[in-house]
Design a protein around this nucleic acid. Structure first.
Lengths: 212, 212
DNA sequence: TATCAATTGAACACAGTGTCTATTAGTAGT
DNA sequence: ACTACTAATAGACACTGTGTTCAATTGATA
């Protein structure tokens, strides 16, 4: 949607005004700060503007309402994840099996958790108790479903049966679950530890002994 | 909390006034109806009162605000689930293995999905896109964690390691995931089908062939 | 019937929303 | 450096929903 337009001297429809970018930046960061401090549900447009040192009129020049702003922040994060997502889609089960056997965390998973940590306060705000109910499913669909389709046995990847859909929903939600737990318990584990946990859980069958 | 008090002629602190129960009933059902029709986020206290044919003053006699009402409706549902939950906690892995092997749905799981279906419109409203972000985690903790602890290998049930915590979070979220999918895709599958799906997923390891 | 309690209808101040104005000030292009 | 443009400002506006209060009324209890 919002393509970054380099200023190609010709064919430029509108070159962005410095004031616009300054205001948007201020608004976005004020919103993230306040979300983290007070929770998404209690902050108002006025609060954001005060913190951003900007008028409410300016706010409405940029965003339709508070939800649109938050949504846009979420979109930005999900967009960032796309490159990780793509590289994850190129893994196959063999890569995973090797990594699990050697207990070596996969680079791409470490990178994923590193990135999530870099957005820690925002994620806590948006996925926590006072967050946005629409975000977790979007994160799940973006990241976790990719993971699952990767590790899904090829035989069923194209299988359109309802059971496979539930199968995917099952494991995609499972991965969202550990990410969610990690976020909401203060991200105590390192990215490598989380990558290792994520990998190991891939090959565990409930009721089967696991080595700790 | 809200114990049902039979009218023991003595020792009764307050016998509930008919008008109170009538009003509460009307308010609760008006809320459920409107949630299902329009979504939780857009309905107001005034809307609920209009539908319930009750004054706003009466509403605030019974509930602190809209959130408290919704919360109370959720509590009621989770309370209902406790008996199912308890009986589920008495299963062991053997029972599950037998059921899966014979592909016979466990009665208790069928009962669970039957009950969830009976609350279908409420669940759709509260777990859907315009729902309450706090509910899904509570449902997960109530139901799914019980399932997981049941099927968890005894060896690890008392193990306090962080990996086990993630293990539980992983599968509890997975179960919430299929329940969520079922709810948000219109509960097309029968309760028996869902029970069978839930059982089978217990014994599946990603990347392993599965028979459809 | 007498007492008690819940409901009513109306009013209230308040907070937040979204829109719109005239005015000011910063920016881009020539 | 000038000009034309455009964003930001400060303030006002009507509007919706909230939560509280009150006297008057109605219904329940015993």
């Amino acid at each position: 949607m919002e393509a970054i337009q380099e200023q190609t001297p010709e064919q430029v429809t509108t070159s962005p005004d410095r004031r616009s970018v300054r205001s948007e930046y201020a608004i976005r960061h004020a919103c993230i700060d306040l979300m983290s401090e007070y929770g998404l549900d209690v902050i108002t447009v006025g609060d954001v503007c005060k913190r951003a040192d900007v008028t409410r009129g300016t706010f409405y020049n940029h965003y339709k309402d508070k939800d649109a702003l938050v949504r846009s922040l979420e979109d930005e994060l999900l967009l960032d994840l796309r490159s990780i997502q793509q590289r994850m889609g190129q893994l196959d089960l063999g890569d995973l099996a090797v990594a699990v056997a050697s207990d070596e965390p996969l680079d791409i998973l470490v990178e994923l958790f590193d990135y999530l940590r870099s957005k820690g306060s925002f994620l806590r705000a948006v996925m926590g108790e006072h967050g946005d109910i629409t975000f977790a499913p979007r994160l799940r669909d973006a990241v976790c479903t990719t993971i699952v389709r990767t590790m899904l046995h090829e035989k069923y990847r194209e299988n359109p049966s309802e059971f496979v859909n539930y199968y995917v929903a099952f494991f995609a939600s499972a991965y969202l679950g550990i990410i969610n737990r990690w976020i909401n318990t203060g991200m105590k584990e390192s990215s490598k530890e989380m990558a290792r946990i994520a990998q190991r859980l891939l090959f565990i069958k409930p009721g089967e002994p696991i080595e700790l």
